[in-house]
Structures are given as structure tokens and as C-alpha cells.
Simulated scan of single mutants.
Amino acid sequence: MFCALVALGAACLSPTVTAAPNAFTLSSTAFANGGLIPRVHECTSGGGNDPAKKNESPPLAWSGAPAAAKSYAIVMRDLDNNNLIHWVIYDIPAATASLPQNVQHVYQPPVPAGSRQVYYRGSASLYGYQGPCSPSTVNTYEFVVHALNRASLTTLNNTSSTQTAARAIAAASIGTARMTGES
């Protein structure tokens, strides 16, 4: 603090304090970071008839993204299974800061408008979210939201692989936020 004598009193000037920018964060109302992913978000493939498993994507919300973000993408991986990619959704408009539960399993879901999903090729073949499928082990699943430097990933289309999409997203990423869940 700098103080100077001014007329009959002292005037003190405080140094300029610049607030740190908000941290880019990702959260879900379905589970806490590092917590147990509810069964409604687990896959329906792999045998068994558990009615609680519905393969619904969890609701996700993010805040504090870089101001330069022109769109968003989310990549979900199974960290305990060779980083197997379970979900890629991209071209999420910059004005969007959340996804609802159960994003429709189509290439171009109606919500969020303008977004696209990659076709998952595995135990279940479908567009979009493929929930945790670890019947005999507890695995860690990572959700990463990427702030992207472009509004659309025009090199991707409805036949792009999850790996190709993940590389394109990483190349356009200007910031990330992540959370994990166990299942």
C-alpha cells in the first residue's frame, strides 16, 4: 500500500488487485467428481437384465471456459481399459454450457442443436454415449470438456472414428475441464 501526505491528512492508495480468472470446471448433478456413476448411466449391453441400467448420458455442466471458445466438445474415456473412448460429442455451440441427461443416440441430436456425435463401435454399436460396461471390475471414467478455437470441426463426419474425432478435438482445444466417475 502506498500512502502520501495530502493537505491535512494522509491518502493511501491500494495496489491494483486483479482477480484470477474463473477456473474452467466440469460438473454433473448425477455424481460428484471421483464418485460413483449411477447405474442409469451404465451400458445395457453385456448380458443381464438390470432394469436400472439405461445407457443414458449423465447431465453435465461447465463454467469458466476461455472467452475465445467458439464451440465445445466432450470426450469420455475408460481410463482403466486402454483409454477406450466411450463418447464423443462435438460442435456444441459456444452459447451452451450444459448437456441434459440422456442426449439422444443420433448423429445430430436435437439437443444441443447443432451438435454431432461419433458412432461408437464396440459391444453396442450406436451414435453417442456408451455408458460404463465393466461387469467384473470398477473402472474410472473420465469426462473432458474441450473449449475449441473453431465453431465446427468440418473435417469430421458421420463415419469418423472416435480416435479421429479425439485427435481433431485435441488439435482445436484451447482449454479443458475434466471430471471422473467410478463404475
Rank of each mutant, 00 (worst) to 15 (best):
S136N: 15
N139I: 04
A95F: 06
T137S: 09
A97T: 14
T25F: 04
Q108M: 14
Y119R: 14
C133Y: 13
A65H: 03
I74Q: 01
V138Q: 09
H146M: 08
G122C: 07
N82H: 07
P110H: 06
G47S: 07
G34F: 04
K54R: 12
N102Y: 10
S160D: 02
T137E: 08
G48Q: 05
I74M: 01
P51N: 00
P51M: 00
E56A: 09
T29G: 13
P93K: 09
A147E: 07
R150L: 11
S71D: 03
N83G: 15
T137M: 03
L84C: 04
I85F: 07
Y90P: 09
Y120P: 04
G34M: 06
G35A: 13
Y141A: 02
S98W: 05
L153K: 02
C133A: 14
Y119N: 13
C133N: 15
A67E: 10
R77A: 03
R121D: 12
H41W: 06
G114W: 02
A73N: 02
Y107A: 07
K54N: 05
A97H: 08
G48V: 03
H41Y: 07
V111Y: 13
D50Y: 04
V144D: 06
A69M: 00
G114Q: 06
Q117M: 11
P58V: 00
P135C: 08
V144G: 10
T25I: 11
A30E: 14
I37P: 04
E42A: 08
Q104I: 12
V75D: 01
Y120H: 15
S45C: 15
Y72I: 01
Y90M: 09
A151R: 10
Y141R: 05
Y120V: 09
Y107C: 01
S161V: 04
P58R: 00
N55Q: 01
N49K: 05
N49C: 11
S123P: 07
S136L: 15
P58D: 00
V88M: 05
Y141N: 05
A124R: 08
I89K: 06
G46T: 11
A97E: 03
A68N: 10
L84A: 13
T140H: 06
N49G: 14
A68M: 08
N55T: 00
A166D: 15
I85Y: 09
P66N: 03
Y72K: 00
A113I: 10
A151P: 09
A166E: 15
K54D: 01
A61R: 04
K53A: 02
A32R: 12
V75S: 02
N55A: 00
I74L: 05
S152A: 15
D91F: 02
A151K: 08
D91G: 06
A65C: 00
I74E: 01
N82T: 12
V103Q: 13
E42L: 11
G35R: 12
D80H: 02
R116D: 13
Q108A: 15
N55S: 02
S45E: 12
S125K: 10
G34E: 03
A73S: 06
A68L: 10
S134V: 10
A30K: 10
A124K: 09
H146Q: 04
A94V: 09
I37T: 07
Y119M: 14
D80P: 01
G131M: 07
P59E: 11
S28H: 03
I37K: 04
F31N: 10
Y129F: 11
T25D: 03
A52K: 08
I85N: 09
R121S: 14
A69Q: 00
A65W: 01
N139F: 11
